[in-house]
């Protein structure tokens, strides 16, 4: 690629942690800013060119309002690649917990005057537009982000981490917290990439990276039941991250 690739960053409903990760926390901030051109990123600079075109559009946050969906469609049309970053964009994340309660009720709980709220059921980015990959994580993983940017620079297909957290646990030689210590660990159905952070500290994984492909949520929910968890507990585990996903649907039975 002769010219520097143009990157646009769009934020919808989320905590903005992924954008922070991109411009502040990650290890390769300077490398990335030298090699690419960020033409639109509200947290980085005012102005910019939201109209595009972009070589890659990074989308942060879940879709909870109609204007977001409309803008997303426009961004898709002017972007070569569109990549959701972080759990909210990839699988609904925390904003999607509200899908488990009736919309009006949840609005009333937060706002005294709900006439200004135009919120709808939370959806992930790929519920609205075609995506070309995903940088998972909460916040998004640095390894996958670097892989994405370097692949863009080399014009090759990125290889994202796509196995269960169990793999990273075993590579790190962590004793399995589910089997050995009877902790309700979401690791077996969660996408890896975090380096098995929680099990590495003897804590159960709570699934913040969202579902792995082909996860068997039903079987893990059954195991949790055998371990003594109530149906409500199990429901909460599978809706904390990734409520709208098909992979974890089977674990969301109340």
């Amino acid at each position: 690629m002769n010219e520097q690739p143009k990157i646009g960053v769009f934020k919808y409903s989320c905590c903005a942690g992924c954008e922070f990760q991109l411009i502040y926390f990650q290890k390769h901030v300077i490398d990335m800013f030298e090699k690419t051109q960020i033409t639109y990123c509200r947290m980085l600079q005012s102005g910019g060119h939201p109209e595009g075109p972009f070589d890659v559009a990074l989308i942060e946050g879940a879709i909870t309002e109609q204007w977001q969906a409309d803008q997303l469609n426009r961004v898709r049309a002017v972007s070569r690649y569109l990549i959701p970053i972080g759990s909210c964009a990839v699988c609904g994340g925390v904003p999607a917990i509200k899908n488990t309660t009736e919309e009006q009720e949840i609005e009333k709980r937060v706002y005294t005057d709900t006439s200004l709220v135009h919120s709808m059921k939370t959806g992930a980015i790929n519920d609205y537009v075609k995506i070309d990959g995903a940088v998972k994580g909460c916040p998004m993983g640095v390894r996958d982000l670097s892989e994405l940017v370097i692949s863009l620079l080399l014009d090759k297909r990125p290889e994202f981490v796509n196995c269960s957290v169990c793999v990273e646990c075993k590579l790190a030689a962590n004793i399995c917290v589910l089997v050995a210590y009877n902790e309700p660990c979401m690791g077996p159905v969660t996408n890896a990439g975090c380096g098995a952070l929680c099990p590495g500290h003897h804590r159960a994984c709570y699934g913040c990276w969202g579902p792995m492909e082909d996860a068997n949520a039903w079987a893990l929910a059954g195991q949790f039941r055998l371990m003594g968890l109530t149906n409500d507990d199990i429901h909460r585990k599978f809706t904390e991250f990734g409520q709208p996903t098909t992979q974890w649907k089977a674990g969301q039975i109340k």
């Binding site: 269960s164 996860a215 079987a219």
Partner: peptide
Amino acid sequence: ADSRCLGCTNCTMV
């Protein structure tokens, strides 16, 4: 495979 296998790969890792 349907009712119990999680596809987590623990069996082959150990």
